[in-house]
Structures are given as C-alpha cells and as structure tokens.
Write a protein that binds this DNA or RNA. Sequence first.
DNA 1: GTCTATATTGAGATAGAC
DNA 2: GTCTATCTCAATATAGAC
Lengths: 191, 191
Amino acid sequence: MLAAREEAIIQNVNRLLAEKGFDAMTVDEVAAAVGIAKASLYKHFPSKEDLAAAAMVRVMRRAQQFLASVDPALPMLDKLKSAVRWTLQVRLAGQMPSLPSQNSSLRAALMSSRDYRDALTGIGEQLGEWIEAGQREGAVDPKLPSAAVLYTLYARACDPVVEFLKAAGQHTDEQIVDLVLSTCFDGLSAR
Amino acid sequence: MLAAREEAIIQNVNRLLAEKGFDAMTVDEVAAAVGIAKASLYKHFPSKEDLAAAAMVRVMRRAQQFLASVDPALPMLDKLKSAVRWTLQVRLAGQMPSLPSQNSSLRAALMSSRDYRDALTGIGEQLGEWIEAGQREGAVDPKLPSAAVLYTLYARACDPVVEFLKAAGQHTDEQIVDLVLSTCFDGLSAR
DNA sequence: GTCTATATTGAGATAGAC
DNA sequence: GTCTATCTCAATATAGAC
C-alpha cells in the first residue's frame, strides 16, 4: 500500500516536472494530483527536492533497464542511437522530468541521494563503454574526448529543439526523433 | 543620465541572468548590484520579466551586429559556424543570459515586447538566408528542414554541454568552443 | 498516515515622503 | 527619480488532532 502510494506520487511528480519544470511545479499541485493532503505528502518525502530526486531516479532506472535490453550484437553506433532515441521518445511522450540546469539546492539534494548517484554513474559507465568501443571500431569520431560525446548524448534529454519542432507543428513525433538523431550523429554539414 | 543608468541596470541583469538564471535571480540582487533601491529599479522597468526582456534584447542586438559584420565572401557554412562560435564565446565569458525554456509569464512578456520580437525575427531571417543558401550550395545537409537547422543553431545558446565541459576542467575555453562546433556541424559519427 | 489549519518566509511589487 | 518602509501573496513546510 505504502509503496503503491509512493509510486502514484512519483508518477505525478514525473508528469508535472515534464509539463512545467521544477520551479513552476508546486507541492500543492502534486498533492492535489495524487488526491491527498500536502501534509501527507511530506510524510513520504521530506522536501520538494526529494520529490524531484525520486522522479529522476525512477526515469534513470528505466533508462538503465533500457540500456540493458539493447541487443549486444548491434554496432556501437546503433546502440548509442537507440539510447538517444529512447530518451527522445520519453520526452515526446511528456514523461521526461525537466530540472533547471543551475539550482544549487536541487543539485545538492540530487547529489546527496545515493540512488541518484548510482543511477547516474551506471548510465555513464554503460554509455562510456559503448562510446569508447565505437571509437576503437572507427564509428564514433575518435578526435572527440569520450566525455564530450557522453555529455552531448546526455544533453539530448533536455534539448529545446524537440519543443521547438513540436511547437512548429510541421512534423510527427517520429520525424522529430529522426531529425534530432540526424543532427546529433551526422551534424548539420552535408556528408 | 537616465540612459546610462538603465544601461548599468541591464548590464547587471545580463550578468546575473548568466550566473544564476531567471528564477534564481532576485530583483533585490539586481538593485544591490546596481547600487540603487529596489523601488527605483521599478521606476525604470515595470517588472522582473521586463528586466529579462531588456537583457535579452541587448544581447540579441549585439548578435545582429555581429552577423552584420561577418565577411559576406565567406562560404555559408563558415558564416554559420562563426555565428555559433560568437554565441559560445559570449556564454563562456559569462555574458549570455539564461532563461527557463518553459515559463509562461516570461514568454508572454518577451513576446509582447516589440524590440524582442524584432530582434528575434531579424536574427532568424539572417541565419535562415545563410542556411538555405548553404543548402543550395551543398554545404549544409539538404535533407534537413531549414527550420530544424535554425533551431539547432539557436539551441547552442543554452547547450549544457558547455557547462559540463567547463566543470570538468579538462579543456580551455577555445577547446570547448571547437568541440561544440565540431559536434554541432560534423556530428558524433566519424566522417 | 491522513487530515485541517497554521506558521514562516522569500520575493515581487507599491506607498508616500523628499 | 530616489529613498525607506511596507504590502501582498504564493509556496514550502509544520503542528497537532484523529
């Protein structure tokens, strides 16, 4: 029961974070969405930051599950593309929590969460392996530091191009995914 | 005198927006930085949103000036690269105001400002010309809608990769600029 | 653990004198 | 146009009964 309630809370936080972002999301809203009193919410999570952290851990765990399910036989480049594709699909489904890039209280709360750190390093290690293997096999640009590649992939999780293209209304979700994948891996210059 | 004071205000807003972002920046801080009382600030700008709009207009006007100064003889791709390079340099100098991507009151205030809309469309038209000319001459990927290219260039103004690389401390500012330019125009895949 | 009711405070905005 | 002092209010968080 308790776990189910907390799952309901996290699910709503996740959705609200995706819709409005951390600053615009209020704890009152979350409580109303779940259908409980705000004070009850605070029995489960001690602060708004912890709510955000729980939502982030949830989506990052799902990302890890996805990465673990990727066909190991695929070329490294395809593995990386499928990871980015998964991220973009989650975003277009309105289920990617969006946090401010600079917010010290939030960053502190995230980094003090063991679960968050573990999920983040887990994802980073998996992608890092694929990136470096991809560079060895000549598919990923070997001139780029692997960390730069990793950050560039991470950044697709909050790339405003997705919302721009969505707002423009000229493309289906699938087309948006393909466009962002193309610019990310092939660049803007003609090949 | 009045214009000079307002210039001082905008300059401080610009810096604070670059440092902390819109939500974390407080009007009290701005007043303190300028060295005037908060009430005096409100004689110049009617709201916090208007402060942000003024800062954005300022940097966008500078961007337009830069675009106008680019050598017309350059290949289109080099013109586009120099535009992105300028943006990244402004960011690394800590002078690019950062706004939340989703904030309805702020977006409304920005879009209700004639100066803002004019600057935005001016930049969009100039870059749009270069993009489409670049596609005609085969330098910019012709498979991409020109709007998608434009959005991708715009997005470099708030790409978190810049801060990630800066925080990692492994690269000079020049190297960071080159890395982001490389991933933006040439992609992550090997060529 | 859930509720109602309340405390607290940070921050945008304003009043009114000079 | 500048100041000090104040208003207002939203939003995080808590007290205390059940």
